[in-house]
C-alpha cells in the first residue's frame, strides 16, 4: 500500500508534473524571473514555456534602486542549469516589494 502522501507528491519533480499546462513562476540565475505556461520539463529542470514573460532585475550605476525590464517570448526553452526554483504562478503572495 502507498500512503496518501506518496501519491500526491512522493518526489519533488512530481510538483512540476502537476504544473504541466499551468502558469508557472520560475526564478532563474542572473536576477531573472519568468512566468509562462509549462509545456515540458525533464529531470534536469529543462523546461519549455509558452507565452513567457521574463523579468530581468538590474542596478543602474549611481543608483541604489533595483530596476527591472521585461522581455516576452511566445515559446522558449530554458536550460535547467539556470533554474533555481519553480512555483505555481497562481499561488504566490507578495509580502514586500
Amino acid at each position: 500500500m502507498v500512503d496518501e502522501k506518496s501519491v500526491s507528491a512522493s518526489e519533488p519533480l512530481d510538483l512540476i508534473r502537476l504544473c504541466l499546462d499551468e502558469q508557472i513562476f520560475v526564478k532563474l540565475r542572473g536576477n531573472r524571473e519568468m512566468t509562462g505556461k509549462l509545456h515540458a520539463y525533464d529531470s534536469h529542470c529543462n523546461i519549455v514555456l509558452g507565452d513567457a514573460t521574463e523579468t530581468i532585475y538590474y542596478l543602474e550605476s549611481g543608483s541604489e534602486d533595483v530596476k527591472s525590464r521585461k522581455e516576452k517570448s511566445e515559446l522558449v526553452f530554458v536550460r535547467g542549469d539556470s533554474v533555481m526554483s519553480i512555483a505555481d504562478a497562481s499561488n504566490i503572495g507578495k509580502t514586500n516589494a
Binding site: 526554483s85 512555483a87 499561488n91 507578495k94
Partner: peptide
C-alpha cells in the same frame, strides 16, 4: 531578514 514572497508550494532545484 527581509521577507520577499510567500509560496503555497515551491520546488527548489537541488544544485542551489
Amino acid at each position: 531578514s527581509k521577507e520577499i514572497r510567500k509560496y503555497n508550494e515551491l520546488f527548489v532545484r537541488g544544485n542551489n
